[in-house]
């Protein structure tokens, strides 16, 4: 208690009028670091795994944004023979319809990552809002929401998603909404748990006594305090959503042709494995690499925010 190292922000013990009040007046305010500087300080402490993860993620995002510029051919253009081998013209060969594999990989990054990010964002908006609402209101709202989530979680996610996609039809909007809703259950549980710890604190009660509305309490008092675990969870959920989409595509109910996407690319070219061709492993490898990269970054971030040493 008395041994806490003083903050760099210049926290001097309060001026006491009995002693000459020199200390607090004489201390000049230290300059606040800019966001850029502190971000750089943080990055310098990052372990090699986190650096690797961030570089991979950076590369993926650049590729997906500039896909039309980078890709040698169009996304759905038939440019050669079916199943052409690797050559200088088609770096990774062509697929079952004669489309360039490399181009489809590049466009696949764009589609799959884009849809996964969007889905995760929707899932967090739903789960986060409801989770905080349950924590703030408590009582029957909490009970109803929590039981609803229990019901949704009781059904295996992939199978449930398959059933819903068959019912509503496999359009991209449906895909995003269905996976987002199913995935938001986990976000709900996490948000509710971490928000509970904040809700009981006096500053939330103080805000209530000031007559603040629930939206304000959730957005301004609670959200900033639970953001670090949520950001970390965002990374992890992104991986799972990504894998779910890939799995659904592999099963034929995800992203529909001719849109390029890694899951369906594995399926469509899987026969090549029988002939000792590793081409179908390329989209699978791309999925694996992205998942590993995201996990490296999230691990590091979790370590930082949970305050663990070493």
């Amino acid at each position: 208690m008395s041994a806490e190292p003083e903050q760099a922000g210049g926290t001097m013990p309060t001026v006491d009028a009995l002693a000459p009040a020199t200390t607090a007046d004489a201390v000049a305010l230290p300059r606040r670091r800019t966001a850029l500087q502190s971000a750089w300080r943080l990055l310098k402490t990052a372990p090699p795994t986190a650096w690797f993860g961030m570089l991979v993620l950076g590369a993926y995002f650049i590729v997906s944004i500039f896909a039309p510029l980078i890709a040698p051919y169009g996304e759905a253009d038939i440019v050669g023979d079916q199943f052409a081998p690797w050559s200088s013209q088609f770096v990774f060969g062509t697929d079952q319809l004669g489309r360039d594999m490399l181009s489809r990989l590049i466009f696949g990054a764009r589609n799959t990552i884009g849809i996964a990010v969007l889905t995760t964002a929707v899932s967090f908006s739903i789960g986060g809002t409801l989770g905080m609402l349950a924590a703030v209101l408590g009582g029957w709202v909490d009970q109803v929401l929590a039981r609803l989530v229990d019901v949704l979680m009781a059904i295996p996610q992939l199978i449930f998603a398959l059933v819903l996609l068959v019912i509503f039809g496999p359009s991209i909007t449906n895909l995003i909404l269905i996976i987002a809703v199913l995935d938001s259950t986990r976000v709900f549980r996490l948000t509710r748990a971490v928000a509970m710890n904040v809700v009981v604190q006096d500053f939330v009660e103080a805000a209530r006594l000031q007559g603040e509305k629930i939206a304000w309490i959730m957005g301004r008092e609670i959200l900033p305090n639970i953001l670090p675990p949520l950001v970390a969870e965002f990374g992890l959920r992104f991986c799972f959503v990504f894998l779910t989409i890939a799995a659904l595509s592999f099963l034929g109910l995800g992203i529909q042709p001719p849109t390029a996407d890694w899951g369906s690319m594995v399926r469509e070219n899987s026969t090549l494995i029988n002939y000792g061709d590793i081409t179908p492993l390329l989209p699978a490898g791309a999925i694996a690499l992205l998942t590993v990269a995201v996990n490296f970054v999230v691990d590091w971030f979790l370590h930082k925010t949970s305050g663990l040493k070493e």
Partner: peptide
């Protein structure tokens, strides 16, 4: 109202 623990009575963020 003013609280006992100023640490928890102010939003740290």
């Amino acid at each position: 109202m003013i609280y006992q623990m100023p640490d928890t009575a102010l939003n740290p963020r």
